[in-house]
């Protein structure tokens, strides 16, 4: 075994893999944000709270109704996505013609309210949620022990990311959506219901956040502040990737997961700031982000 800066290589392989796993969470969350921003021009600050709701609804389904993880993977995004649709219809639709800053303030306020409500009922220390039986245990890869659940996370989220990208960039529905963003009036003239398209897109983005929440529940502490812990990082990921770029969000999510993973080995104290340092550098050199379409 060789060493890099005094760290044995097998340790680095392990960190590389863990970085990819964390990156898949970043990718999944920033994907939803990028879809919402790219298609709707809304900076969705509620995203972290919706991720937390995903984890909590999964907990509630198991606790009160006995519905397991696998069913929750399907039900939770639909339920939380539906609350997203209500939020869009009630509030966001009215802000469409205003500066995006209004949407930002509104969603930020909503995030605080949702978090506060959950804290009031469930406290701050969190709730237990077990790994599903089928994914218990793990494999020894020689350089590290890989829990089955983490392997599942990486495969599943990669699949979700690619399907979403394909749906938006390569299908007819996706092309309607992109056209509606560019020129809503013209698209309406072709008989397409643009407001409904916008509402459903927001619901879909929220559903993605909730899906990430369900996937996080078995490994992270299910607590009301879990969303606010991660959302700032995810925003940095989206900014680095380029606001609105779907592929940019996915690639940046995985890359930054790896960068953060290595920082945790070489200089752990900086692991929560390294992403912001990169963000500053990227904004200085390419203000539209790495994959952005220009401002």
């Amino acid at each position: 075994m060789f060493e890099i800066f005094g760290v044995p290589s097998y340790a680095l392989f392990g960190q590389l893999l863990l970085g990819l796993i964390n990156g898949s969470f970043y990718a999944l969350l920033s994907l939803g944000l990028a879809v919402i921003f790219g298609m709707l021009n809304i900076i969705n600050f509620t995203h972290g709270a919706q991720y937390m709701m995903g984890a909590f609804v999964a907990y509630m389904l198991l606790q009160y109704l006995g519905i397991n993880y696998w069913a929750a993977l399907v039900i939770v995004p639909i339920l939380v996505g539906a609350t997203g649709i209500i939020i869009e219809r009630l509030f966001l639709a009215r802000l469409q013609k205003l500066d995006p800053l209004y949407g930002l303030l509104l969603t930020f306020g909503l995030a605080l309210i949702i978090e506060g409500v959950f804290r009031n009922y469930y406290g701050s220390s969190g709730k237990p949620y077990d790994i599903p039986d089928a994914l218990q245990g793990g494999h020894n890869l020689g350089f590290m022990f890989l829990p089955n659940y983490r392997a599942w996370v990486i495969v599943f989220s990669l699949a979700v990311c690619l399907v979403t990208w394909f749906a938006i960039e390569r299908t007819r529905l996706g092309s309607y959506l992109r056209a509606a963003t560019e020129n809503p009036t013209l698209v309406r003239a072709f008989g397409i219901d643009v407001p409904r398209l916008v509402t459903l897109t927001y619901g879909f983005g929220v559903g993605l956040a909730a899906l990430a929440g369900v996937m996080a529940a078995p490994i992270y502490n299910v607590s009301p502040q879990m969303g606010s812990d991660i959302i700032i990082v995810v925003f940095a990921v989206v900014v680095i990737g380029g606001m609105g770029s779907i592929m940019g969000a996915i690639l940046t999510g995985f890359t930054l997961g790896i960068v953060e993973g290595f920082t945790k080995v070489f200089f752990p104290e900086a692991s929560n700031t390294v992403i912001f340092v990169i963000m500053v550098i990227v904004l200085l050199i390419r203000p539209a982000g790495l994959f952005g379409r220009g401002i």
Binding site: Q15, G19, K264, P268, S271
Partner: peptide
């Protein structure tokens, strides 16, 4: 290993501890 307050993912640190 010193980790930031309110950290979510500990797998990197746990791997170092394991090794």
């Amino acid at each position: 290993v010193a980790h930031p307050l309110n950290n979510q993912d500990f797998s990197s640190f746990l791997l170092q501890a394991q090794q």
